[in-house]
């Protein structure tokens, strides 16, 4: 247990290093989450609106879950070399599937009666999408973003292996930082993962329209495998 005591001492002695690596970690994570959102959300929303491509949209997350993160980074190291871009590409590949599946399912399964009513009220297709389908789909869509974000923050630890920086740099660098540093880095990244999870949970709640917040409307990640899809 002495290692753990020393780890806290290390954090105190190297506060600026810890902050710098945490910042790198966050920049990498949010850049990946942002790019993945730009790819996955429009695609999922459009497919869901048209009710087309359900096989692909739902199964992409099954395949995505099967992709080992270190393997993706490794293949990237071979083909793209060391650096930020390689890691970014790997993290985006891992973040897209849950976002895409949830966005698709969220829009696809909006109550047809609500869409019908909107059409009856004379709304155009675009209005239906923006004023009815998307607001009703936000909670489930956001559940996908949250899952992906938490996954990315955790996986960004591996980025250090490919020169992407972040807290993983300390964890893999026993030669420079010693065991206390390795433990300190591990504790810090664990804490970061928990904070990320909590922050996104709060954000998800804030994004959910008040009328949908009542108990029993808990919005969970779509688990296609559970449904046998």
């Amino acid at each position: 247990m002495n290692d753990f005591t020393n780890a806290f001492k290390f954090m105190g002695d190297n506060a600026s290093l810890m902050l710098e690596k945490t910042w790198e970690h966050l920049v990498l994570s949010f850049a990946s989450i942002g790019v993945a959102m730009l790819i996955a959300l429009p695609l999922g929303v459009v497919l869901g609106h048209m009710h087309k491509g359900s096989f692909v949209a739902i199964n992409v997350s099954n395949v995505g879950r099967a992709l080992p993160s270190l393997a993706i980074i490794s293949i990237g190291l071979g083909l793209l070399g060391i650096g930020f871009i390689n890691v970014l590409v790997a993290l985006v590949i891992l973040a897209v599937p849950p976002m895409l599946t949830n966005a698709f399912v969220a829009i696809d399964r909006v109550d047809p009666d609500a869409v019908e009513a909107a059409r009856g009220a004379g709304m155009s297709n675009a209005q239906i999408l923006w004023k009815v389908e998307i607001p009703l789909a936000v909670p489930l869509m956001f559940a996908g973003i949250r899952t992906a974000a938490v996954y990315v923050i955790a996986t960004a630890t591996l980025a250090a292996l490919a020169g992407g920086g972040g807290l993983g740099d300390i964890i893999i660098n026993q030669a420079s930082y010693g065991t206390p540093g390795v433990i300190a880095g591990s504790l810090a990244v664990t804490l970061l993962a928990f904070l990320g999870e909590a922050a996104f949970a709060l954000l998800q709640r804030a994004m959910t329209p008040r009328a949908l917040r009542r108990k029993g409307m808990a919005v969970e990640l779509v688990e296609p495998a559970l449904e046998g899809a």
Binding site: V63, P68, A71, L77, G78
Partner: peptide, 27 residues
Amino acid sequence: IFNAIQDGFKTQFVAAGVLAVVLALVA
């Protein structure tokens, strides 16, 4: 993969990565 990180041998990166992906998909 970790061995390849030490010597930078690209074929080993790609081969080990692809094998891990294949193992997951087959399972």
